[in-house]
Design a protein around this nucleic acid. Structure first.
Lengths: 354, 354
DNA sequence: AAAGTAATCGATAACTGTATCGAAGATCAA
DNA sequence: TTGATCTTCGATACAGTTATCGATTACTTT
């Protein structure tokens, strides 16, 4: 059986209270006894019982994280960063993957609330605000990741999506593109922000989207991702004023877009330049390495973790805080056409990674 | 404040004990009161306090998972599968990423043990057996994932590495390769098993590795992965009897190998066929899509979860169980040279994924 | 009617640690 | 010396649940 405070107290002829105080650096303990206790604690390799501690303090020293898909490198990176950061402060991290299923996500949130996690971090695939209201009822502090919800004032950490759109579109303009199209995503904050940035970048250069140059990928699960990108890009390429640059909502969509361009017998980036978003780990291993806007997922994780730790300690709820992480552009072959053609070696995976 | 058993008991004029029994489907409760209690529980949305429950039962209904790198799709897939499976049974999963650092891994194991997880799952990056001995001292059941340790009798779930080597090498033989080389990994169970399978497959075809056709990637962190593969393959290609097929320890190494082959002005698979292992998510997005042995990471996760749940309930320790998952070959362009040349479309990402 | 049995529920202790306040002794000032 | 203050430690209550065993009631059997 594991050693308890009682055992140590009995060994040293002290009371449990004294041992408990030593453990928590309580001031009113004599130096001599403090040393004796610490020595014995080390000898017996005492590990405090979190259950008993939680019962009285109300804190569990755990943090919950719900992501739509742990396989997605973006969320995996965030999860990893959070795990590392909170562990340093003695917190452990529950991670669960909702598989993009709102119903499953709600169950997982409920389970984590039942476990009385100190803070809840959610990258939600929800469409309504309802489940967040339930979290608020329980008075558990929570932080939304990646995606925001209008009409919900909550803590938020994610990339600055407007800056994403600005960065990508401005880059295409600088590369000499004049007919820049956008394959946009569904009606969620990330897609809307990127669309807005795209529009603003064009406007800043005295340009405007040509009619039909903003296409949306299908909302059904089957037509999202790469397939949706292929279909959307096919539409664009059949257009009478064919785009010479396409900014895609995310990297999978950009992959589909690139496939459509190559299938149409066109060259990337000479005929059509492509920029995605997410900077996924495969981005520089492709046939044509994909330029992409990096969302700074590691930074998102670190910032979210630090905010979570703050919330865990402040018993008094503060005003919700929104942290926008600045994105940065990672230029690869798919959009590099201003200067000389890229070296052949750049078309292949290179050992030096971003 | 959250509702407690006491509240429900008071509301209905019953004792806490009765409510507790209803919650756990104890037989000696009358049907009428059982329904009344369940109704009230639902009304108040009662959530049991895990801390109090753990304190008395000794079970925490949590499972711990330690992986070397959550960003690696192999481990991400395993983590996801485990998370989904154990959640169904009411368990929550602590996940931590050790960043391939043995010292960090030990800290994380210690933290999870201190939390009294019911079962510990470890994909270890350890070199010694020492830390597992400590787990055994605490009498916490544990399961090793992916990598085994000689001289340590423990529960294990992972791919059948010998079968991996057999499958890959046999495939290359069937594709008409006659000088098959192997880029092997370090001195750990996975690499040794795959090497053994490679040897056996050759022997079964009355063949043997030519001298110098088994090369090892460097053990230092810098020379592992893609860079190590590039260096190892360069050696092989300079050999007087140049290989016409290479089986690589894993996919990153295979990527480096392919880069070396193309840099040498040779064709894949016509001059040299390549097979990797891991079937990483980028495998069919490459310039030359990579044939790879799939390790069945989802199956590993599911089997590990099911074993973990068994261990969580059996208070009496059973004999350690070893579960070997059969791998399967995923043939793509990098090794397909027996019949007609692959269709051009196969050289590009295809929407239909394995 | 007496005794036995089954069904249903509750009183009490226990699990381990923490918060609170009080007690004992030491030290110091007046 | 007295009183006050400080230092160091402990007694007690408590957090929310479950294990155990005893109590009550109703029903059955002989």
């Amino acid at each position: 059986m594991a050693t308890r405070l009682k055992d140590i107290a009995h060994d040293l002829g002290l009371s449990v209270v004294t041992i408990s105080k030593v453990l928590r650096d309580h001031p009113d303990i004599g130096e001599a006894t403090r040393k004796r206790v610490l020595k014995r604690i080390k000898e017996l390799n005492y590990q405090p019982n979190f259950a008993a501690r939680s019962l009285i303090t109300g804190q569990t020293w755990t943090i919950g994280l719900v992501v739509p898909d742990l396989l997605h490198p973006f969320f995996a990176q965030i999860a990893k960063a959070i795990s590392v950061e909170v562990r340093k402060k003695g917190y452990s991290l529950f991670i669960s993957s909702s598989d993009e299923d709102p119903a499953l996500e709600q169950e997982e949130i409920a389970q984590l609330l039942a476990r009385r996690v100190d803070v809840l971090l959610i990258a939600s695939s929800q469409w309504t605000v309802e489940s967040f209201r339930r979290i608020e009822e329980q008075k558990t502090p929570y932080i939304l990741l990646d995606r925001q919800f209008s009409g919900l004032e909550s803590n938020f950490v994610g990339v600055d999506d407007r800056a994403v759109g600005l960065l990508a579109t401005t880059h295409l303009i600088e590369q000499g593109c004049r007919r820049i199209a956008h394959v946009r995503g569904p009606e969620i904050s990330t897609a809307l922000g990127r669309l807005d940035g795209y529009r603003r970048a064009l406007a800043a250069a005295q340009m405007a989207p040509l009619p039909g140059h903003i296409v949306s990928i299908g909302s059904s699960g089957d037509h999202r991702g790469e397939k949706g990108g292929y279909e959307a890009a096919s539409k664009l390429l059949g257009h009478k004023s064919r785009p010479d640059g396409i900014f895609c909502f995310n990297d999978p969509v950009a992959l589909g877009t690139m496939r459509a361009i190559l299938d149409a017998g066109l060259r990337i980036p000479e005929d059509v330049a492509v920029v995605g978003c997410g900077n996924l780990s495969y981005s520089d291993l492709l046939r044509v390495p994909l330029s992409s806007v990096d969302q700074g997922s590691m930074t998102i994780g670190k910032v979210a973790a630090s905010l979570a730790l703050k919330l865990a300690h402040n018993k008094t709820p503060r005003r919700p805080k929104s942290e926008l992480i600045p994105p940065h552009m990672v230029v690869r072959a798919s959009s590099l056409r201003s200067r000389a053609a890229p070296e052949p070696s750049q078309l292949l995976p290179s050992p030096a990674r971003e």
